[in-house]
Amino acid sequence: MPLDAAAAATEARPLLEVEDLARDFDVSKPLLFRLLQGEKKRILHAVAGVTFAIPRGTTLSLVGESGCGKTTVARLVVGLYTPTRGAIRIDGTDMATLTSRAAQAPVRRRMQMIFQDPYASLNPRWRVGDIIAEPIRAFGLMRDRGEIEARVGQLLRQVGLSEKDSEKFPHEFSGGQRQRISIARALSSNPEFLVCDEPTSALDVSVQAQILNLMKDLQQRLGLTYLFISHNLAVVRHMSDRIGVMYLGKIVELAPGETLFARPLHPYTRLLLEAIPDLEMTGRQRTPVGGEVPSPINPPSGCAFHPRCPFANDRCKAEAPALVTREGVQVACHAVEEGRLAA
């Protein structure tokens, strides 16, 4: 059966499009102190203009070290923060055009978030059943109590827990089980898009494997689209179709997962790959790159990575590189662009 053109266009349109997204935070001291001590306002550029899109049913991961802005991107996308600049489009709908809560609700229902800390993401005073049912009630998806209970039971089974668990409180569960509850809550409004902010970084490895497997299964079964945030490159490699590497609020390289690991282009990506201890490389000697991530309040001039970059020259210090696409890989680096740095 041939699809008509409109349906084909919907199918082809990425579920999430983010364009030149930026978010500043005012981290100045209170006004009175500033006046007394003659200090200026201090603005933290947590996210300084990122652009990416996630096709339906795929996973895009953002990796980077703490302070690179990956969590801020996640929170911007689900509307926990309002952008300073730029646009977020969910299935073609610009979120900025939806001003009232009522107008946002249909879009909010379609996206949910999974959080990092399974000990803080569930209200300790609520029963698991009420936690999972909250989105159902908030969006008015079901009214009948029995119907809601049945749906909660189904969700619990779907994430590998038992229906009876809905009567319990969060403290009765282990970290991995709590993360399953968190996933069940996220799935309860039948979303198409999940934003996962370090969903396994608080878990032990054997439990992490369970959760990652579960998330992959759910993606296949329900056709979910993921924005996956992590600092763990191995986890990211396991989960993603495409990977964006962030440094100081910007994406420095965005590539298909396999390509990124086989041929990392940006010097920072290379550093990260070099830095991670891996089981395969027992006893290997490495020369770790020095330096630390600079403060996003006072980012270095030009390319933010230049103080740590072994390939930096005068141009890198003066001029910020733009994200350029080459053979399906987007990279923001003068050295790569000029061919100074071999691929």
Binding site: S174, A209, Q210, L233, V235, R237, F261, D278
Partner: peptide, 24 residues
């Protein structure tokens, strides 16, 4: 054995990680 299998690898990709069911 299970613990080692459950660690995602940087060098090769598997469809599913090996998992140890349950928790400590």
């Amino acid at each position: 054995e299970g613990l080692m299998g459950s660690i995602p690898s940087l060098t090769h990709r598997v469809e599913r990680l090996r998992q140890i069911d349950g928790s400590m």
